[in-house]
Amino acid sequence: MDVRVHGSVPAGPFLGARDLFEHQYDVEKPVHVRVREDPDERTWAGHYDDRHVLNISRRAATSVMARELALHEYAHMARYEGDHVSHTMGLSEVLFLALPGRRVERRVLQQCEQLANHAKDIYADDITLDVAPTDKLLTFLESQLAAAVAERPPADTEPAGGYRLTAAADPELTAVNAAFALALLERHDAVPADHRIYEFADLADADAPGVDVAWFKERFRTLADDPDESAHRHALVDLVRAYVDAHETTTGPAAD
Rank of each mutant, 00 (worst) to 15 (best):
E186G: 07
G210C: 09
L91Y: 06
V149N: 08
R51Q: 13
I197N: 13
L236G: 02
R67L: 08
D125L: 13
D225T: 05
A214P: 10
E248V: 09
Q110S: 15
H47V: 13
R241M: 08
F96M: 15
K120C: 10
P209T: 08
E93V: 03
A167S: 00
Q110Y: 11
S57D: 11
L69D: 14
A45I: 07
A168Q: 13
V35Y: 12
Q144C: 13
Q144R: 14
L99E: 01
A17G: 02
K217A: 04
Q110L: 15
D225H: 05
H232S: 06
A175M: 06
T88A: 12
A242T: 06
Q111I: 09
H32G: 10
L141W: 03
D135V: 10
S230D: 15
G252K: 03
A75W: 04
V9S: 05
Q24G: 13
P171N: 05
V33H: 02
Y123V: 12
G210Q: 00
L184T: 02
V9M: 03
A147N: 11
H72V: 04
Y25Q: 10
S92A: 15
L97K: 14
R152W: 14
K217E: 14
G82T: 05
A11P: 07
A208M: 07
R107H: 15
L97T: 02
A60L: 12
D126T: 01
T250K: 15
T157H: 06
E22S: 07
L95M: 04
R59F: 13
F200M: 14
A179F: 00
N117Y: 11
I56L: 11
L138S: 01
A148V: 01
F21D: 09
L71C: 04
A150D: 12
A146S: 06
A167N: 11
G161M: 02
D170H: 07
E105H: 14
H195E: 08
H84N: 01
D212P: 09
R79K: 09
H87S: 00
L137H: 12
T134H: 14
E22K: 03
A181I: 02
L165K: 10
